[in-house]
Design a protein around this nucleic acid. Structure first.
Lengths: 231, 231
DNA sequence: CTCTTGTGTATTGTCGACAATTACCTCTAT
DNA sequence: ATAGAGGTAATTGTCGACAATACACAAGAG
């Protein structure tokens, strides 16, 4: 009778490591968005067999970083404006709900920890005008904490396991370090306040507005670019 | 220079067919939830090599129908009450947003088509007390149409490509043919009305309540079972 | 008696080769 | 000159075998 350890942590295989490298390469644009992927070429580059590479490609497909078609091949997803806006709408739905659940399910310790984190960000932010650091690390940290705080494995897997790789990719590709840092900080504070008040409805509303504001910020920027190009 | 056809439809491979068979087997409970998957055994059963089987398993993992751990193996996901409720919460978020987008993005033709569909369901429903048909086919059809109507590829992929396989699995495993048929029909009608009014906010609200009502219905049933067991 | 250690077996991960399909190029006909 | 058919090269899908890892049971130490 097989009595396997049900909670054993997974080991790191070759495919895992190649997956991570490819992930970074795609996210940071070292592999051009929309470009075709040659299995033989990549396998040779990473010194692995095609089987192992295909295993890694399957994981990339799971994060929606590449698209595969049978008998045709894989391509890196292309970053379109439409795709970016769709992604924000999806985030608005999922993270909004995650925030509502976080207000209901987070432990008091988790809430305190998040408040501390935000206080530290406030210091960093005041210290160095905090645009880059806050936006890069702080924002991601904040959203991650909220999502994990939902204690909803389904939401956690969907957002952290899949969507966020795409989010990072778009951020890199479009060079998005928005000037919303100080305003975003205030919004984060309000969200945490709602969570610590255990007000799920308000928490969801604020998170949705927070994300919607980013989306509208992008839409405006795009509209501006279009107007410039046409002039 | 490679100028491949970018819009070519994908062919059907062996792995695809095995994937579909396994999908049905898991969804309908022919493979017990939570049970371990033996690659050699399954490969022999389907008369394919392990490579092909693993390709199919990767697709199953993408739908969250199985879980894999490196060097340990794959298991069919187990259907827990908590997982079911998490799934409904996720659906509430995603389908709610999809419904809002549908109100904004559906074409007039699509809306008319959905109204026709609902009218036909009404006839079927009156004809045969419509519990099973409506719940099985009609409900799925309705939700599918709304999701597709969002015209948001990200939402469509997430819900139809991933979540709904799990939804069907839970429905089969827990034998859920809820007695909410007539009430659900009214709710569907109201949702379509909101969509045809292009009232995204109301459409989202109604869809969320519609799904939340199903969730609460399940919660009540579970609570009832618990009370019976304890008596 | 319990826990650790060692060994054999079974399962998973990786590899290279072959078969099937697709993409590209050339040639021909209109 | 352009469009279509045929052939060739390259890419993807599938296969079976080997290597690495984990499991189950047995033996020994505390």
């Amino acid at each position: 009778m097989l009595l396997q350890n049900p909670t054993k942590q997974a080991a790191v295989t070759t495919a895992d490591k190649v997956f991570e490298q490819l992930q970074h390469a795609i996210v940071e644009g070292d592999m051009a968005a929309g470009s075709k992927i040659s299995e033989p070429e990549l396998a040779k580059h990473y010194q692995i067999s095609r089987s192992t590479l295909r295993e890694a490609l399957n994981r990339l497909e799971k994060c929606h970083l590449i698209e595969r078609k049978a008998n045709i091949g894989s391509r890196v997803v292309d970053c379109t404006i439409e795709g970016l806006l769709e992604l924000y709408i999806t985030r608005e739905a999922l993270e909004g709900m995650a925030c509502r659940q976080a207000a209901l399910n987070m432990t008091d310790e988790e809430i305190v920890h998040m408040q501390d984190m935000l206080a530290q960000h406030a210091g960093d932010k005041a210290l160095q005008e905090g645009v880059s650091y806050y936006q890069e690390e702080g924002d991601v940290d904040f959203h991650y904490k909220v999502i994990l705080g939902s204690h909803n494995q389904q939401l956690i897997n969907l957002i952290c396991g899949q969507l966020y790789h795409l989010v990072r990719m778009y951020r890199c590709q479009f060079g998005m370090h928005s000037p919303r840092a100080t305003r975003a900080f205030t919004e984060h504070s309000n969200i945490i306040q709602a969570i610590s008040d255990r007000d799920g409805e308000l928490a969801e509303l604020l998170m949705r507005r927070h994300i919607a504001a980013s989306r509208k910020n992008i839409e405006n920027k795009i509209a501006l670019q279009k107007a410039e190009q046409e002039s």
